Simulated assay, not measured.
Amino acid sequence: MSPPRRWPLHPPPGPLEALSSWLGRLAELYEMPVHDLLRHNLGVVDPTLPTDLDVDPPMAMLMALAEKTGVDLARLRSMTLVGWVPWLFDTLPVHVQDAQPVFDSYVRDNSVLFAGKAGTHHVLRFRPEWAGPWLLPYPGALRACPDCVADPDRGISLMWRLALMTSCIEHDCRLLELSEVRAALVLGREVHREPLEEPRAALDRCTHQALTTGRVALPGRSVHAGVWFRLLRSLLDEVSLAASTQGTRGKAMLRQIWQATGHEERAGMNVWRPFEQLREDVREAMWDAAAAAFQLAADGLITARGRLGSALQPPPPYVYDGDEPSPFRNAWQDFMSAWEEALASARTDPATARQLLGLLTGGCHTLEGFEKERASLYEEGIPAEFLPGARELGRLDLM
């Protein structure tokens, strides 16, 4: 069988580049519109093209592109938003009837600062409809890094269309409006680059690490990228809550966080709305508050009591590792083998997951301890819906 016929020119996509951006660069090489490149040169039976190439293009189109360019199919899939399910999104698209359950699962079930679900607001009240985490209802002007745009081998990052990052880590500058950047490049004008200050930059570094390596090294421990995205989105939600919704300790924590930002509490917001539906200036203030909370927790100045809060806390003091283990198999090795088998079963069996949670939390005397053990099982890949809360497990003594 003869090898697949490649297009003569097929430069590889840039890091985290959007599919539409890469196809635009390819089409430019052949001096034709993207529409003509895909409709007449892929050899697919159905040449119907989606309105937005970056969301969920047909698999047949991606397979044909992989054959024509030699780019791996999985790489092409990752250049679309649906290719980031389930790491960055639980599901796409989010239908109106599913908005509240998706919001509760992604945001409210992954508490950071507060034990349990901190808020009770409903996203279904608001218009336009909540489209999902990080997705803006009105995308507006696309932002970009001027240095990346100037590089012919980079293109436009898929992540720039989301409310996920506000700077380019590689070039240490805030993202600017793409139209302004392109106009400056055409006219040969200098583009003013503004670095993102700490502690905001720390959040973007963590997100970039998650996107490029699949894990994030946090002050408390290393976590999977999917955990980081949900932790960050939950943190943005918690700092947006009114102090009046919290107890004495929660009120004091929120006030300390907002005082550290220099902004008015909640950026003057009177009516709660999901982060994605806030005005840009209010979203900027929420980023500042989330960054302040991240730094205060890392410095041990506040205690994050939520399910994922322990990931932000400083690690415990060093303890001597002990002597080298015996080369002979022992009871501990047998236990670890059994434990790994139990974890594997719990990832698909709710009953086993519940039993493991009960085993781990049997000696817990505080709700914070219970939630830490629950979070540890979640990070082992056990679905959140398999891990009941303290009340559901009958631990009313921890309420």
Rank of each mutant, 00 (worst) to 15 (best):
Q256E: 04
H10I: 04
L241Q: 07
D98A: 14
V227E: 00
T361Y: 03
E371A: 13
A267W: 03
P33L: 11
N330I: 07
V45E: 10
L42E: 02
T261C: 04
E265Y: 07
L203D: 01
M61A: 11
I382K: 01
I156A: 02
R154I: 02
R143I: 13
R230G: 02
Q259N: 10
L308S: 13
D54W: 03
G188H: 05
E129H: 12
L23P: 02
S240R: 13
V123D: 00
A346I: 11
Q256A: 09
R266T: 05
A311P: 00
A304Y: 05
P274W: 04
Y138I: 11
Q209E: 15
Q256G: 08
E170Y: 08
G214T: 10
E190V: 15
G309K: 04
C364F: 02
R283H: 00
D72K: 15
C145T: 08
W134R: 11
P219H: 09
V149H: 01
G262M: 06
L241I: 09
G363D: 06
T166L: 07
T248V: 09
S157F: 01
G14N: 06
T261L: 04
T69R: 10
G362H: 13
A260C: 02
H95I: 04
L88S: 11
Q256I: 06
A292Y: 01
A217K: 09
R221M: 08
M399V: 12
G132N: 05
D109P: 00
Q313H: 14
P47L: 11
V181R: 01
Y318W: 13
E340T: 12
Y318A: 15
V319P: 01
V34Q: 05
M61F: 04
Y106M: 02
L359N: 06
F294H: 13
R221N: 00
W258Y: 07
T213W: 04
S78M: 13
R249T: 04
E264M: 11
E238C: 11
F275V: 14
P383F: 12
H224D: 05
Q209S: 15
T212P: 02
L76R: 02
A60S: 12
G43T: 10
L113D: 00
A331W: 03
E265A: 14
S179L: 09
L135M: 12
K372Y: 02
R143N: 05
N270D: 02
P152A: 06
Q259Y: 03
S326R: 13
L211I: 10
W87P: 00
G268I: 07
L92C: 06
P325L: 14
C206F: 10
D397F: 06
W84S: 09
A184D: 08
R125Q: 04
A27V: 13
G247P: 03
P195M: 14
C168G: 09
W228D: 00
A293Y: 05
V282S: 03
P137E: 03
F103I: 03
T48K: 13
L176K: 14
H208K: 06
